[in-house]
């Protein structure tokens, strides 16, 4: 009995140590891995509209912008991330993503919600805010372009959502959407410009209707609940069988 207990404690210490080390390593090596919230979407505050729908105008808080100034070292800008102060839009990029003029010493990256939006990306419609993502040298104010795509994360308002699009000043381009977490969507952005979530016109304004995103979440939640319920049932059956075996012996 003492030997069994000692083995269990040794294995327990080892597993505990290995698990904590692995979790910490994953946290630093792959910080983009999803957090664990046990199937329940974490609470989010209301969406901040730059131009709110009439029904939400009285309670709406304006969307906020974000800005970051970085120094240019060896002709390169280091890897960094910028987000708006309300956390509704963010970008992340690797070292060398931003193509800077050789003489530049600093650059400023901005994410700003637009009051006057570009033309609608027919046949789809913009939902939520349009964010302008720009970068320029300081203090000259010369535009900076991208050498390779950066990652953009956008929060979408409740309701229907189809895809993210970027506007280059004359045309809208559909972005390849990556991971979706809650109402946050990631996409690869090949050029700096305006970014917005878009949807089919028929769905616009129907906050009570399920969006594809909500549906995916509900299906995921359902699958998760099914697994949890199945495990509870298995556990209950095992428990009942154990008790009946104990009684039998």
């Amino acid at each position: 009995m003492a030997l069994e207990l000692s083995t269990a404690r040794r294995a327990g210490w080892f597993a505990l140590f290995a698990g904590i080390c692995a979790t910490a390593t994953l946290h630093f090596v792959a910080p983009s891995l999803p957090d664990i919230y046990d199937g329940l979407p974490p609470p989010e505050g209301p969406y901040h509209y730059e131009s709110p729908p009439p029904a939400l105008a009285s309670s709406n808080q304006p969307a906020l912008s974000g800005m970051l100034t970085l120094s240019v070292q060896g002709g390169q800008v280091r890897a960094a991330g910028v987000q708006t102060d309300d956390g509704q839009a963010a970008i992340f990029f690797d070292a060398g993503t931003l193509k800077v003029p050789p003489t530049a010493q600093n650059i400023t990256i901005r994410i700003e919600p637009l009051q006057s939006t570009p033309p609608q990306p027919s046949p789809l419609m913009i939902i939520g805010n349009v964010y302008r993502i720009s970068a320029s040298t300081e203090p000259e104010g010369r535009s900076v372009t991208l050498g390779k795509p950066l990652q953009v994360i956008l929060r979408t308002p409740p309701g229907a959502y189809r895809t993210l699009q970027s506007y280059d000043g004359s045309h809208w381009h559909v972005l390849r959407v990556g991971r979706v977490t809650g109402h946050y969507v990631t996409a690869s952005l090949p050029i700096l410009g305006d970014v917005a979530a878009t949807t089919a016109p028929a769905r616009t304004g129907s906050h009570s209707r399920l969006s594809a995103l909500d549906l995916i979440h509900r299906i995921h939640g359902l699958a998760y609940l099914t697994v949890v319920v199945a495990l509870v049932l298995v556990g209950a059956v095992v428990l009942i069988r154990r008790r009946s075996l104990r009684r039998g012996s």
Binding site: R9, L16, G19, I36
Partner: peptide, 12 residues
């Protein structure tokens, strides 16, 4: 990793 940590805690 989280499962291993919690399992270790249970064994311990």
């Amino acid at each position: 990793a989280a499962g291993l940590t919690l399992a270790g805690l249970r064994a311990l």
